[in-house]
Amino acid sequence: MPEQFNTLTSRTFVIDQEDIDTDQIIPARFLTTTTRDGLGKLAFHDWRYDSNGKPLENVSLNSLDTGTHQVLVAGRNFGCGSSREHAPWALYDFGFRAVIASEIADIFRSNSAKNGLVPIVAPPEAHDWLMAHPDVEIEIDLADQRVDLGNGPSFHFEIEPFAKHCLMEGTDPLGYLTAQSDAITAYET
């Protein structure tokens, strides 16, 4: 189970690119795993390593300190493509706790919120500011659904209330669903 999420003060790491698909986040050939553990080393694999698996120099993801940089900022339509939950598993294991983009693909957004990775859609002005100011300290307050950008335009964000609840509790909704067993039986009969 992921950690509970309340507030996070962290520096941002910006990838100035639109339409970052799940094949970039974790290439399909690594999906033969049967666990969800240890996928952080495969996050953005083909951007970070050469064909012999050697880390590429001058790729900032390879020297990123996720102790200080836990917020990924990217362009429009982040996480498009496949339904692989391996994508948020890899980003969480890599050390990210939130993703901010101007638009986030539906399935990735749903998967992220179940795995401790807060998906945040920023309004255009704030998103532009974040892209133009890489590596700044920001504060995310999930309860208030607010991101404080310091000198930038702080903003409110929308998050589905149940997803927010699960992120704040560090739980997934399976317990809630199994507790509805009577309603399911009533529907089935």
Binding site: E85, L174, T178
Partner: peptide, 13 residues
Amino acid sequence: GIGTTEVGHVLAT
């Protein structure tokens, strides 16, 4: 399409 956590939800419920 759904994620793996949701696959678990549908298997169980």
